[in-house]
């Protein structure tokens, strides 16, 4: 396999990992007003992701850095072309990250309410916008022969992309609810589990519609298999949530999100950003790539350090494996 293909796969893996991990973070953030009826319950929700959200977000930073290093043209065109959605995502991630750290720093209810709003909106916006962005990558955008984005904001808000946004929103909400059912005790666990079933049914409808439309735009045998796998995993997750097998339900939503993202990348390959105008504008894994020398160095770094990162991040989840409930929330 040549280096550009390996790096296409690695970028796909990094974004897949990012959406699986921060997906439930976003879900938990958005469910704050739904499942957290009072301050202590909201603190239970936030503390399920407290120790891990920052490490989860590094998957995005690594994906962005890897894209810059391995496919500079892709990074440059995408980030300058999707300017306003990315700006909104950045502002959301800033507000949300600070909110987790600062919310409990003062006792006033008004203080907490404001940070709650930051967490909710800061989770909602990226949950939708990442779907919009990735749907547009798959669908293609207006690029001129120099690979410059020549569309406007409205070009990004087409029906297919909006369906993509709705799908990631529903998937992350379900994933978050399933995660909460797995990580909490008592009443919150019951409500999260019940909500996961209802959200999962909605997510399944949206995901099937979105993936079908995706395969209609561009497809490959691998993409079809992955899409079917994603739909089955999601249905399995809903079924498991119904019978309160929370570990299986979470595995199901994680696999469903992973396979759905993989479907997009499989359908996209070998393109990385197709042009809807001049075919010469289309960016591919070949014409967007760095030199073989850079890719080779990066491959070595990835081969050595990725297993190490996975090991200690996995260990973190093991350390914080215990469920928490309102009784575990300290007073202060």
């Amino acid at each position: 396999m040549d280096l550009t293909t390996i790096w296409f796969l690695l970028i796909a893996v990094l974004f897949t990992g990012y959406f699986i991990l921060e997906g439930f973070d976003f879900g938990v953030g958005m469910l704050l007003p739904v499942l957290g009826r009072d301050d202590r319950e909201r603190r239970v929700l936030i503390n399920t992701i407290g120790p891990v959200w920052d490490g989860n977000e590094v998957w995005l930073i690594t994906a962005g850095g890897a894209m810059f290093a391995a496919f500079p043209e892709w990074y440059a065109t995408l980030f300058s072309g999707f300017y306003l959605p990315l700006l909104l995502i950045l502002l959301a991630l800033i507000a949300r990250g600070v909110a987790f750290e600062y919310r409990h720093k003062r006792p006033e209810a008004s203080w907490k309410r404001r940070w709650d709003t930051a967490i909710i909106i800061g989770s909602l916006l990226p949950a939708i916008l990442w779907g919009v962005a990735f749907a547009n990558i798959l669908r293609g955008v207006p690029l001129d022969a120099d690979h410059e984005y020549v569309g406007g904001l409205l070009d990004l808000l087409n029906p297919y992309a909006l369906l993509g946004g709705a799908t990631t929103l529903a998937l992350f909400l379900t994933h978050g609810a399933v995660f909460l059912a797995l990580k909490t005790t008592g009443d919150i666990r019951e409500r999260a589990g019940a909500l996961a079933v209802r959200l999962g049914a909605g997510a399944a409808v949206l995901a099937v519609a979105f993936l079908t439309w995706t395969l209609d735009i561009r497809s490959s045998a691998a993409a079809v298999v992955l899409a079917v796998g994603a739909a089955l995993a999601l249905l399995g997750a809903v079924a498991a949530a119904r019978v309160r097998r929370e570990g299986w339900a979470f595995t199901g939503t994680a696999v469903a999100i992973g396979l759905a993202v993989a479907t997009l990348f499989a359908a996209l390959f070998p393109n990385v950003l197709p042009s809807t105008l001049d075919a010469a504008g289309t960016l591919t894994a070949t014409n967007a790539a760095s030199t073989p020398y850079t890719l080779k160095i990066m491959t070595w770094v990835a081969v050595i350090f990725t297993p190490v990162v996975l090991a200690y991040q996995g260990w973190t989840y093991w350390v914080f494996r215990k469920r928490i409930g309102v009784a575990n929330i300290p007073q202060h």
Binding site: A66, Y75, V309
Partner: peptide, 9 residues
């Protein structure tokens, strides 16, 4: 890009 990616990883 390489030092940025390596920094993250």
């Amino acid at each position: 890009g390489a030092p940025l990616a390596i920094e993250a990883l």
